[in-house]
Design a protein around this nucleic acid. Structure first.
Lengths: 197, 197
DNA sequence: TGATGAATTCTGCACCCGTTGAATAACAAA
DNA sequence: TTTGTTATTCAACGGGTGCAGAATTCATCA
């Protein structure tokens, strides 16, 4: 005799853990940390809210587990840094804008930006992630004494572009074709990386 | 006979309305829109939460009423635009960095940035405020055909600097002296305003 | 003086939040 | 087969949220 047909473990593999992570990524990116609730993540994953805690611990834990850069710096950076040194800014700008145009990349970046402005612990985690995986290697590649400072300036323009074009949606910057945005921003990055300050 | 000594109107002028507005500005800037509660605003103003609705309507209404630019564009822009055209970038950078270094200006700007990333209605309001009061005049002063686009690029670097230096706190950008930050950023603004794109 | 309106507090409603604990069912290992 | 581990649901707790309504007191003006 089955007393309750709803509770209890399902047969077979369910992939619930990943479903929760995917829904979490989606919602953190779309709404930001505060406006994403554990309950709504569970709903999108088609799952009971208690499973979120069960698999991923607290909400902050889940966020940190799910927060990743939209690319693998160790793969990408060498490709950008190699080749004509005068074109590094262009290659960097191209890569960034491409990443922002692809829905998945944009989502991840927006999640980072949104979280950094609301949840202090997230801001700390993001700062450390960026410093270790992007700014530090970038600075080493530049080699100059003030390389870390330069890397920070680069980051400031990248973040600002993200905000202005994709979050606030300032026109006509928001609807300009990607290529002309690259051309506009590339010299800035080039100067921050290798030009006079 | 007084039945309840706490309720009822106080004698004299209380300045409650302004106290609420001030506390709201403070908290929206420090914690962002979502993490600021009507109740905490009331507490900081030393006042009952119901007075917030009473004077300023809903929470969004209050935010919009309290949200202002940290300067008067009509006053400031002419001062920046006048003089040597090759130094506009420097004057603009100086003004921005100065505004960000002063606690009150920084607070207001942070409030704008934080709200823009969390509350969509605020993002819309901010976009319109910026467009009407800053970007439009700036574009007219530039005069070129793509002036609005140029103004957007300027805004992107300004916002990015705010995020990187004051919100996320990327080092050593965050602790560099204001003057050297001005020197680093000025050429970027200058090119966005008047240089080749 | 009397009447109207504004300022103030209290109470409470309806809802959402993150998290926990117990109960149940399937799987894995013995 | 028994035993323990894991996946799952349900129910609930304690707390926070924005906001509306009633009651009370002061101010203002006829």
């Amino acid at each position: 005799m089955v007393s309750n047909p709803h509770t209890g473990r399902r047969a077979g593999q369910s992939g619930t853990r990943e479903a929760i992570a995917t829904a979490a990524r989606q919602q953190f990116a779309a709404r930001g940390y505060d406006r994403t609730s554990v309950r709504s993540i569970a709903q999108e994953a088609g799952v009971d809210p208690a499973l979120v805690s069960h698999f991923h611990g607290s909400k902050v834990d889940l966020f940190l587990a799910v927060t990743e850069l939209p690319f693998e710096p160790a793969e990408v950076l060498p490709r950008i840094l190699a080749g004509d040194p005068d074109e590094i800014g262009t290659r960097l700008a191209e890569f960034i804008v491409e990443a922002l145009e692809a829905p998945e990349g944009r989502g991840r970046i927006l999640a980072l930006v949104r979280a950094a402005t609301s949840e202090p612990e997230a801001a700390r985690a993001i700062r450390e992630l960026l410093t270790a995986k992007v700014l530090q290697p970038l600075a080493e590649a530049i080699g100059a004494g003030d390389a870390q400072y330069r890397a920070g300036l680069v980051m400031s323009q990248v973040v600002g572009l993200t905000m202005a074009r994709y979050v606030v949606g300032i026109e006509p910057l928001a609807s300009r074709d990607p290529h002309s945005v690259v051309r506009s921003v590339a010299p800035t990055l080039q100067r921050y990386l290798a030009g006079p300050l």
